[in-house]
Design a protein around this nucleic acid. Structure first.
Lengths: 197, 197
DNA sequence: ACCTGAACACCGTTCAAGT
DNA sequence: ACCTGAACACCGTTCAAGT
């Protein structure tokens, strides 16, 4: 279930069979544990459920963030694919908001994802994590909406994802988390002011 | 420095002198430690710095949340006073946004506050915590802005504070946290769409 | 090359024993 | 009434010893 689509390697070579088996087991256990108790799930408990020593977990994933990135990589990849599909839509403003809402729903319903995205490097999330993937994918959607004059030119994708992420984080535990996230993101996108006229 | 304005009591009676001294020391140590390492600061370390046993900390503050509420009570009270002052302003829309920005600045610059507010009871923050205080204080500002037809009728103070809190949380660690928080809150208030015409 | 088990320095919570 | 110190069941990280 939780085998990563991108096969893990060490210096370009695929892992030895037993190492690969452990890698997958750890990821599967992490999926269950993080869903149960969030991004701060006990690494010890994950190793236990995977049937490996804690040291093995630490070799495969040198930091909690590395484990979370591997865990969410595929789900985030799906969002990136969706963004590229929406980039050719007729209405760039609608395309952007559709995507932002989708990101919010993912974040609000996938325990630990929002916290994991926020834990990445501070202001401009750089590097190879899930945050960068989303940022790159969304950039083009925003560019088009701004080129069409639909979205304010001051808004950046870093801002928009920060807002969406923030909303995901606050709604994460709620009943109807997805609905609440969409509602709050929509509020932030449209603003609080009543229609003029 | 960190003595609470609202004197702690046990069943209506003020604390014995030594107990009161410990209470204040714990709060002062907590202020320093939470500023240093956030809402998840080590309680053990706080007790150590206060010069009391860890059991003493737990008696005075049965939960981490209780400690954080006591710690932030006075700062939050200031925001509530400000809200009551703004309730008689000429422009209710401007009054509301002024206050929301102030809340965001507090949250973004006071390590641990946003996380503490979010940890309160889920959907409708009830009870006696800082979240309820802010909610009650803001309610009147929103009511007036909506009565004037300035703010959408669907927006609730729970929504607005969730947004502001979410923004405080994401910006908490950043350089220029206050500026960033104001910028993001302003974006959410005004929405992302470019001005028509 | 990869794994395991143990060791280390921490946690938060609780409780018996003190004054 | 209030405090202390110790005990308990946990953490995450690292490292020597194994195969």
């Amino acid at each position: 279930m939780a085998e990563s689509a991108t096969a893990p390697t060490v210096r370009g070579r695929p892992l030895r069979a037993d190492a690969r088996r452990n890698y997958d087991r750890i990821l599967a256990a992490a999926e269950a544990e993080v869903a149960r108790s969030g991004a701060g799930a006990s690494l010890e408990e994950i190793a236990r459920q995977a049937g490996v020593g804690s040291a093995t977990l630490h070799r495969h994933f040198p930091s909690r963030q590395a484990l979370l990135d591997a865990l969410f990589h595929d789900r985030v990849e799906v969002l990136c694919v969706q963004a590229r599909g929406l980039a050719s839509a007729d209405d760039p403003g609608a395309a952007l908001t559709t995507w932002l809402r989708a990101v919010a729903v993912y974040g609000a319903t996938t325990r630990g994802l929002a916290a994991s995205l926020m834990a990445g490097p501070p202001d401009p999330p750089s590097g190879e994590g899930c945050g960068t993937m989303l940022l790159d994918a969304g950039q083009e959607l925003l560019r088009r909406a701004q080129a069409a004059g639909t979205v304010r030119s001051e808004a950046t994708m870093v801002d928009l994802l920060a807002l969406v992420n923030a909303v995901s984080l606050v709604t994460e535990g709620r009943t109807d988390a997805a609905d609440e996230a969409v509602r709050l993101v929509s509020l932030a996108i449209d603003g609080v002011w009543a229609q003029a006229g």
